[in-house]
Amino acid sequence: MQNNQINYVELPAKDLEANKAFFSRCFGWQFEDYGADYTAFSNAGLDGGFFRANFTSRPQTGAALVVLYSDHLETTLERVEQCGGIIEQPIFEFPGGRRFHFLDPCGNEWAVWSKVKAEG
Rank of each mutant, 00 (worst) to 15 (best):
E119V: 12
S42I: 07
Y8I: 04
H72C: 12
A44E: 04
A64Q: 12
F94P: 00
S70E: 07
C83R: 04
S57Y: 00
A44H: 02
N108A: 08
W110L: 05
A40I: 08
G96I: 05
L73C: 06
C83V: 03
G84T: 04
C26G: 09
W113N: 14
L65C: 05
E81M: 09
L11A: 05
Q82D: 12
S70Y: 03
G84P: 00
N108R: 11
E88T: 12
A111H: 07
L65Y: 11
R58D: 15
E109S: 12
L16R: 06
H72G: 13
G97Y: 02
E78T: 08
N54E: 09
W110A: 09
G107H: 00
R99S: 10
G84F: 01
P59L: 03
K117S: 08
D37S: 15
D104E: 10
G28H: 09
W29T: 07
F41N: 02
L77S: 06
G49M: 03
E109P: 01
A118G: 11
F27A: 08
M1V: 13
E32P: 07
G62F: 02
G28K: 04
R58Y: 13
P95I: 04
A13G: 12
Q82K: 14
E17Q: 12
E81W: 06
S24G: 11
E78L: 08
D37A: 08
Y34V: 13
E119H: 10
E78G: 10
A40G: 14
L11S: 07
N4E: 15
N7H: 11
C106G: 07
G120D: 03
C26V: 02
A36F: 14
K117T: 12
A44T: 01
A18P: 01
S24K: 10
M1S: 15
N3S: 15
F31R: 05
K117M: 05
W29R: 00
E10I: 04
S42W: 01
R79A: 13
M1G: 15
S24W: 01
A44Y: 00
P105A: 07
S57W: 05
C26Q: 01
V9Q: 06
A13R: 01
L65M: 14
F94I: 05
D104G: 03
Y69K: 09
L11N: 01
I86P: 06
R52Y: 09
V112T: 08
E109R: 12
V66G: 08
G35H: 03
F31V: 09
E93I: 07
Q30D: 10
C26T: 05
T39V: 08
E88G: 09
F94T: 08
G28T: 05
D47F: 06
R25S: 11
C106A: 11
N4C: 12
N43W: 09
G49W: 08
F31D: 10
G62L: 05
F22P: 02
F51T: 10
N7L: 11
L65I: 07
K115C: 11
N19E: 14
A36E: 14
W110N: 03
W113I: 10
N19I: 15
I86R: 09
Y34W: 13
N19F: 08
F94G: 00
C106M: 01
F41L: 02
G84V: 03
L16F: 07
